[in-house]
Simulated assay, not measured.
Amino acid sequence: MSEAFHSLRWPVFEDISNIRVASDPDSAEPELLPFEGHPIAAEAATKIPLKEIAFSLEVLDNYEAAEFEAPDRVFVRGADGGIVTVADVVKQLSAYFIAHKEAILEAKFPFLDFDKDNLSNTRVFFDGFTFIIEPGMYSLPVELWAEGENGESANHWRHGV
């Protein structure tokens, strides 16, 4: 995947207009610029340009609960049949995250440091990809991080996770 994803500060249940790009993702105090209209949005999502990428949610792939089935993987396709861009991934995964919000929060709950009454207000952020894309791979797992996970605040996310 493109290094551009390392720069994203992406609250996955919020509007795309809330996504920020860290000017220097390794800086303790990066300048955060809007994602919409940022040059990285138009970059290829992968080092080797692809027209389709399958994604799954790592937290749901590993979640075990009675009568729970992980959602099907989502196929992100390039706009107009072209190569998949960072913007294509963000837009299409955003809809996927929101569609599975309740399950994501339920799976994240055991790792959070507060009671279940506050779960619906929990902010969850994009945290990268578990693996690299390899030939024959079923799907690329997306990692998410929730505010309060491992006792960390959203400041943790702002400076890179």
Rank of each mutant, 00 (worst) to 15 (best):
H38A: 03
A66I: 12
I53S: 04
K51D: 08
D26A: 11
P110S: 04
N121A: 12
F125G: 02
G81Q: 05
V142Q: 01
T46E: 11
N118C: 04
A66R: 13
T85F: 03
I48K: 15
W10L: 14
K91F: 03
S153Q: 10
D80L: 11
E14D: 15
R158P: 02
F126W: 07
D88C: 06
V161G: 14
I48R: 15
S94R: 15
V124K: 05
P34V: 06
S56A: 08
P30V: 07
L60S: 08
L140D: 00
M1N: 04
L50I: 03
R77P: 01
A95K: 14
A45H: 01
G81D: 09
E3L: 14
S2W: 07
A95R: 13
N18M: 07
E52F: 03
H6I: 13
A95G: 11
D26W: 12
L105I: 08
A66S: 11
E43R: 14
D26I: 03
P71N: 03
F126M: 11
A44P: 09
G128M: 09
A45W: 00
E134F: 04
S23F: 07
Y138F: 13
F131L: 14
G37I: 10
K116M: 04
I83V: 14
I83P: 03
H6T: 14
V12C: 05
A42C: 09
F13W: 09
R9P: 01
V21W: 06
A154P: 01
H6F: 07
L144W: 02
F5R: 10
